[in-house]
Design a protein around this nucleic acid. Sequence first.
DNA 1: AGTAATGTGCAACAAAGTTGCAAATTATTT
DNA 2: AAATAATTTGCAACTTTGTTGCACATTACT
Lengths: 138, 138
Amino acid sequence: MATTVADILKANNLSITDSRKSILELFKLSKGALAHADIEKKSSAQFDRVTIYRTLQTFVDKGIIHTIPTADNSVLYALCKDDCSAGHHHDNHVHFICDSCDTTYCLDHVTIPSVNLPEGFTQKQTDVVVSGVCKNCE
Amino acid sequence: MATTVADILKANNLSITDSRKSILELFKLSKGALAHADIEKKSSAQFDRVTIYRTLQTFVDKGIIHTIPTADNSVLYALCKDDCSAGHHHDNHVHFICDSCDTTYCLDHVTIPSVNLPEGFTQKQTDVVVSGVCKNCE
DNA sequence: AGTAATGTGCAACAAAGTTGCAAATTATTT
DNA sequence: AAATAATTTGCAACTTTGTTGCACATTACT
């Protein structure tokens, strides 16, 4: 069965509202990650800036989307895979940012390599951000 | 010979000014990385906000410091190692952010693991940010 | 010491993000 | 299905963060 955006909201105990449905739909349609600014542009006519902020924050809290660290200080958001939204949240996958077209990809099938930390350091989460040229731009 | 901050500035064809010396000194004294806000707090009485922005930008351009991507959308700056400032800039090392004390470490001796990208993707730079508990906080 | 080049501070602005509160929408109860 | 309770939204006002132009000051050069 194809999970609709409404299903996802329901599964996370969230009220089903227009803004949440639209913004979630945006993520489903987008291949890569979205910046807050992207979302604002694509729906600012419809929704208030503040609503978008709060919606994104809610989605992050519920584990529906996750943030991606970038070198240029912009926050990116991307949809978590199905097994995330089901409960055990894990966004330990590699992100790829194309220098040419600026698209951010979640490379879900690339496993995070293990990192050998010095004595006394405990690892909880690892973010790997690779930049370069994507398959569409080379 | 111990390289002074003035030496570093000279080596990069930068005028030696009070603000640059002080800010560079801050980095030398700090073990971890610094956020812009940190620098502003520790020297805002002395220097204008704008000067700090411009100084940091200059240092990044010259390869004296580098930026670190973080998940919470704050930019961190850290001193590059000596061989960076000598010319061939490389900040491909692992960064560690302590969840407890919020200090960011540059783990220069931990090598970046190689990542197997899908067909058609070309890798240029890799940033690895690990979060967890550092050796002072456990 | 004097001139050219560079850097700094101020002001004004733009962008990004936050908070409180009343109105509107969604969910729940009867 | 209507009424109430619980959420959510939009507005306004504000804070923080970052940028730009320009006059003045400082540093470097001869």
